[in-house]
Amino acid sequence: MLDRLGVAHRYVRRPGDLDGLAGIILPGGESTTHLKVMTEEGLFGALQQFAANGGAFFGTCAGAILLAREVHGPAQASLGLLDISIRRNAYGRQLASDVHTGATKLRPEPLEMVFIRAPIIESVGEGIEVLAEEGGHAVLVRQGRILAATFHPELSDDPAVHEHFLKLAAQ
C-alpha cells in the first residue's frame, strides 16, 4: 500500500531504525509475538520515546492492541499511547473473521473493513475521536497523531485510511 502511495518506508526491527521517521505503522499479526520482539530489541521504550518526540502512529489490529492503554483477554503489557481499552480476539476465532462495509468520518462514501480475529475496543477516553463504528463498537479511532483500526486497511484496495495517516504524519 505504501509503495502504491509513493511513500518512502522501511522495516523497523531495532530502535536505530526509527531515526528520521515521521511515523510508524504497527502492523497486524499476533500482539504477543510483537510484544516479545519489541521488548527484547529495546523497541518498547524507543517507541514511547518516538511518541514523546511527536512521531505519528498507525496501529492495525494487533498494532491497535499494542497502542492501547489497557488490554484484556488476556491482560498484557502495551505501549499505553492511546486512551482505549481493548479486548483481544473478542469476536471469536477465525470463523468469526469477516468483511464489512460501513460509514466513516473520513469521507461520505462507505469504507470496506476486513476483520481478522479482530479485537474489540470496549471503551474510549475523552481525548479519543471515533472515526468509524461497527456493531456498536469503535473500529477506527484517533488521538492526536495516533491512529488505530481494529480491521486491516492494508488488506483492502482502498487507500483512504493510509492516506489519512500520511496526512497526520505530515503535520
Partner: peptide
C-alpha cells in the same frame, strides 16, 4: 479472510 489470516 482466509488468505488474510495467513498474511498475518
Amino acid at each position: 479472510v482466509k488468505v488474510g489470516l495467513a498474511e498475518m
